[in-house]
Design a protein around this nucleic acid. Structure first.
Lengths: 217, 217
DNA sequence: TATATTTACTGAACGGTGTTCGGTAATTGA
DNA sequence: TCAATTACCGAACACCGTTCAGTAAATATA
């Protein structure tokens, strides 16, 4: 089993071709245009043959999404870690939004599939799940550097993980609203940077103080 | 044309029944279970008859989404305006997240349709478009009160509108990530309130100052 | 090399979808 | 009462994801 047999490699190549054409169709014609018959056409197979390589359409989409998250991780890593962590955090967020806007249908698909993902361990905490996600870890490590550099305080019940999650929520909201409700409007990255700087300023020094008159639940 | 004719009222009632059953199906069985034949069954008509009242399925979904945004607006208005604006802004955000989590499929549909909405005036600015949206205006007016009370500064190129948009982006990100990637995880509203307070703190007094080493574009 | 066995692939079909269209029944206005 | 409009439906079209029996090809066995 050390060396892959020809059959196994052919198998892998066809699986790859299926995913590749799926991603291309999504990118060029939108996710609505993607069908098993369309993929089969593109790789010169019959529709039924696709099912020799993937259990169903969802399995294909899942694998395409996994690739998408890998690409997203690469994009997030683009800004160097060794620079000013305040800038790194902000530019990492900018990269997130840029990726979303550059691959709108793909990005929307990634996050509409995310809920259907098979849960390997349902009892696993949200925190440990996210800490195994490379894309989230890029944000997390930048936040870590921000805290280490003293630009940001952590509280007992609101630590690096919570701040990183909040950063993800902020940039995800910017990206999603731009994709869904402002698809035609031009994107002003100067404004986005100002927003991200303001977000960051909120976590400087006084993270966990609550405003008065809190209402619970 | 002052008084509606019986035919017109019957027409309106059937249109309403179509939307009502559509919303019910989405709420009880998810958006994937919704079909023209399913709606026709529910209101005791043939599938073809539906097309006497709506041009196609998208027109039905659009009207259902409009209703959803109205319900969202009502939910956002739940917290009183006359209270401390800092708390009002935060609790308005909490209401946004609560609505999303209470109507997951409906909420996701609303924002997946939003991009397909017919644009009455394509040249209209994003700002004036949003200022006509009642749901956004609830957030906007709370931010207005926050600024008026002196808790928050405005800059020439980053005013009330931008702050309100940023607030929407923040709560939308929280809601969407909770719905898509953390659907099984329990939601901690205490943490969400801390996040929203931190967001708000970022806009206190020093909104538009940029961090060093800015990279443009 | 010849044969048995596993693998790869396909055509046709099933039940579902949104949508259209010709025809019929019901309602309306004159 | 009768013509004209409206409401409604059955049947069909073209697509979808998926299954399955059956055939062709590749592999393993002798």
């Amino acid at each position: 089993m050390e060396i892959a047999k020809p059959r196994t490699r052919r198998n892998a190549r066809i699986r790859q071709a299926i995913i590749k054409s799926a991603v291309e169709i999504i990118h060029h014609e939108g996710v609505a245009a993607l069908s098993i018959r369309r993929i089969a056409d593109a790789i010169d197979y019959s529709p039924a043959s696709i099912y020799e390589y993937y259990a169903n359409k969802d399995a294909i989409l899942e694998e395409a999404c996994d690739e998408g998250f890998t690409k997203l991780t690469v994009a997030l890593r683009e800004y160097p870690t060794e620079s000013d962590p305040r800038v790194a955090v902000r530019e990492c967020g900018v990269q997130y939004v840029r990726f979303a806007l550059a691959n709108p249908d793909y990005f929307l698909l990634m996050f509409s599939m995310a809920g259907n993902q098979r849960i390997d361990n349902p009892t696993e905490s949200l925190e440990s799940q996210l800490l195994r996600s490379p894309a989230f870890m890029v944000i997390h490590s930048h936040i870590h550097a921000l805290v280490d550099a003293g630009y940001c305080d952590v509280k007992p019940n609101y630590g690096i993980f919570q701040i990183a999650l909040s950063a993800w929520q902020m940039v995800h909201g910017i990206a999603m609203l731009a994709l869904t409700t402002q698809r035609n409007a031009p994107v002003d990255y100067t404004l986005i940077r100002m927003t991200l700087d303001a977000w960051q300023r909120g976590f400087a020094h006084t993270v966990a103080e609550r405003h008065p008159n809190e209402s619970n639940c």
